[in-house]
Design a binder for these strands. Structure first.
Lengths: 151, 151
DNA sequence: CGGGAATAGTTGACCACGCAACAATGTCGT
DNA sequence: ACGACATTGTTGCGTGGTCAACTATTCCCG
């Protein structure tokens, strides 16, 4: 085991700013969505994923993968969204184990209602503070990190 | 209400890469700490904060602020850490409402044991993928975002 | 084919966290 | 000095999440 290479001051500052900024950002977005539209950030993202899928539907499994959460988490989230009337479960006809989660009209409407405020908040809290160069570096860096972590 | 300015493709890509990369990163760090040292990432951060504080102790309130979590969260986390023997509660002598959370010897030892692996993971999953320029942009951008969100 | 292994989704048990309410204590203006 | 108000830490409650176990179904290889 080699000697540990600790973070220098600059790396420390980067790490802390990133962690704390991210925590504050997510919290702010969550509160904005919750108070303005009655949707949590996590649920909002599920609705977005469904809205982008062909036929506005996704297998439970794919929804779990796409949202980077566990399958049981998706099961419960979809039940929640179903109770709210924003999603319905549809059986697969080619796989009798399978279930689709499908966006309802009400779900699409809720998304349309919530989206503008959310996008504004993302701009106000993040993109408005980024230069073109900042954004390019962040995009490329996190794209690499994501690829590495998925590998 | 003005027309919503949606995210363009580049902003979308940035946002998704950042969100997903962050989620994967935190998850990876959490698992590394949990499996190698039996500490959650959240608890690890509390130990770090205490280790950096004068006298290895912090008021509950300050610990909550520094960790960006709620007070009740800190109360329960400290109870958890106390049960593990890594932290002890010490009454304030200048404020009878007050409580200090103080790092124990065992807590310091646990931190010393966990830190190298954690730092290695942070390097492997994040800093190794960042150029000097990437890091500078991320540091500055998130520092601004954090300041804005704290304002 | 047929049967073991893999996969889909759900559920139960458990844990972590936030909010609101609370008692205890401190602070401050008048 | 005293009463209104603020602050501290804890707790009950509700919510949301993971892991492991389970059933039902599908896959695949001998």
């Amino acid at each position: 085991m080699a000697e540990t290479r600790w973070l220098d001051d600059d790396e420390q500052a980067t790490w802390r700013a990133y962690l704390e900024g991210t925590r504050l950002l997510i919290h702010a977005l969550d509160r904005q969505l919750e108070t303005d539209s009655g949707v949590s950030f996590a649920d909002y993202e599920l609705l977005v994923l469904l809205s982008e899928a062909p036929g506005h539907r996704l297998r439970m499994r794919d929804l779990a993968d796409a949202s980077f959460t566990s399958r049981s988490g998706v099961t419960r989230a979809v039940t929640r969204l179903e109770d709210a009337g924003w999603v319905r479960r549809v059986e697969c006809d080619d796989d009798r184990r399978g279930m689709h989660a499908e966006l309802t009209e009400a779900g699409a409407a809720k998304l349309a209602e919530a989206a503008p405020g959310h996008v504004s908040a993302v701009r106000a809290h993040m993109f408005d503070h980024l230069s073109e160069a900042d954004r390019a570096h962040i995009r490329d860096a996190y794209t690499r990190m994501r690829a590495h972590l998925l590998g």
